[in-house]
Design a protein around this nucleic acid. Structure first.
Lengths: 231, 231
DNA sequence: TCAAAAGTGTTCATTGTACACCCATGT
DNA sequence: ACATGGGTGTACAATGAACACTTTTGA
């Protein structure tokens, strides 16, 4: 049996890519959503998505969707899962491959929002999402938590320089639980992957808090020596 | 714009399901492979796979593929990842969604093997696999390790009753490292999820080793009380 | 001067790790 | 009697968790 005829009789499917795009805004992880412009569920809140093209692989499709809808490029993205329930999209059978993306809102938010139907929503509004997008969000957050516990990916959500208070709020938001300030600082500073700048953030306190930067180079060289990040 | 016409112009794709099927044989995790019967790569070693049908979701497709090729049913399976490189299958563009499956070989191995092109191979032969199946296997093993560290899924690879020595060998094989016998037993027995039977396995020692069974009911009731399995 | 956030160490409990000898039995 | 795998406990180290006060400064 020749492969073309063998493959040929098989069903073919639409493949969508849906992105759980997360940003850290007002000390809280928020989700970037989009008002759907077509039926079914026109006007409903949706993850950012689009269909996969012939000439690209899945990661490329995800990057393209993100770029097209937000203008953002070079974003940290990870595949989460493929969803394929027969009736997950009432319009037509669509298999969706989902990603989560972490974006540094401080630098980009203003440039992307005004001219579009994009909206940052708090995660407790997730029940407004269409189709199985709430499930996708839940799975993405769970995966993010597991990744964030083992890799320094949280920094993708922060500006280049940040305070330890911000960093702690970020982890508290990711895990949905509060942490002890002294223990948090002891742990993160003990890893020796942050560099303190001689500059303070005076926006949120009179005294001012030192800015830190993540030293990725140092982190990577420590990895080679068997260091494991855990947070 | 109506959804049918909108969806209609999009590309459609073949979707395959490929399964990393693992069994515990001769104190070692082995992979069930299949000699490919069609071009391209006819005769090459392959994961067990097949194409998705119109009327089934992805999990169902994976179960069907497993059932069709091995006769096995009710198997523990988890989705790993979707692979979509444009040229991953030289025959034609195919997106593959992969799963890993854990099977209890003791009960089934004899019934499935003789009449087929299936073969259990040691994981160090993985470089013989076709296409991107080696990558799939690697990703599956990594995911299995993460899952096995947090959930009592290893028991799916063992017969109903097993000795602690077997169980330890299983975890050693999953993680690829040896463990201390006393520490291992202290930890697993301390969880209080195993029950010792009044029966010994005399196959591998003169003295005989007690059989144990996994008490799933007890495990699940402990989960409700906040217990977390870690291994 | 006071309100508000920043910064800082110690103690205790829990968990993980290293380590060596006796036991039971079939041959 | 001996070879083979089965079974057991203790001491130390590392890690995680709880906890409260002083500092700085703009208003």
């Amino acid at each position: 049996m020749h492969e073309d005829s063998f493959y040929g009789v098989q069903a073919r499917f639409l493949i969508a890519v849906d992105c759980t795009i997360l940003g850290f805004i007002d000390n809280e992880i928020k989700l970037l959503t989009f008002r759907r412009k077509i039926e079914p569920k026109k006007g409903g809140l949706s993850l950012l998505g689009g269909f996969m093209n012939e000439n690209e692989n899945i990661d490329q499709a995800a990057s393209r969707v993100l770029k097209t809808l937000t203008g953002l490029d070079n974003i940290y993205m990870q595949q989460v899962k493929a969803y394929g329930n027969v009736d997950r999209d009432p319009g037509e059978r669509v298999i969706s491959v989902t990603y989560y993306a972490l974006i540094n809102v401080t630098d980009y938010a203003n440039s992307l929002l005004p001219e579009s139907d994009l909206e940052w929503i708090s995660l407790d509004r997730k029940r407004e999402l269409i189709f199985d997008h709430e499930q996708m969000l839940d799975d993405a957050i769970l995966l993010l938590r597991r990744h964030a516990a083992l890799h320094p990916i949280g920094f993708n959500l922060l500006p280049e320089k940040f305070t330890l208070t911000q960093l702690q709020s970020l982890y508290e938001s990711i895990y949905g639980e509060t942490m002890d300030k002294r223990n948090f600082r002891k742990k993160i500073l003990g890893m020796d992957i942050l560099e303190r700048l001689d500059e303070k953030d005076k926006k949120s306190s009179k005294r001012g808090a030192y800015y830190y930067v993540f030293n990725r180079q140092r982190y990577e060289s420590m990895l080679d020596k068997g260091f494991v990040f855990t947070m």
